[in-house]
Amino acid sequence: MSKILILFAHPALEKSRVQSQLLAALRGLQGVTLHDLYEVYPDLNIDVRHEQSLLLQHDIILFQHPFYWYSAPAIVKQWQDLVLEHGWAYGSSGTALRGKRMGNVITAGGPETTYSKEGWHHHTIADFLLPFEQTAILCNMQYIPPFTIYGTHRLTPSLIQEQAVAYRQMLEQLRDEQTRI
């Protein structure tokens, strides 16, 4: 059984419709740690040592966040800049994260069709997440393809519930499987 760390980032969760339901869905899930970055670090003053020790205690690291400007909210970048230290996460002696897996859990406003070569945004979500993928590789980690919920602007409550259940199942599968997805 793998241990999953969810690095959750939402600057205005009080206004969120989908992410709040996703959080509710993973409540009580064994082997899954939810780490709410904006709640723990409202001043963005990230405790690097604490974050690193959290990473060491888990096997799978997931960034869960809304898709803002084709990327994550600001605190995720701040987190990456500070926590993934040279000599610890990468570089010739940076092997702390070797063998772990990393991925993104994304909620995007637009429908899936808009995230394609022909669509409104001209690229897929995976394309936009290239920096995350390469970050994982540089840190000796395996990158898991993103779990994306599209079209959140038009999702009805029942559809949101469906997605939340799917998310929970995905996490359970990720946690329990023996090898790669």
Partner: peptide, 18 residues
């Protein structure tokens, strides 16, 4: 500055398109 995270206008627009 919080307006950037307020999606209500986006949602309205998205629903209006329907």
């Amino acid at each position: 500055p919080a307006q950037g995270w307020d999606e209500s206008s986006l949602i309205n627009e998205a629903n209006g398109e329907q």
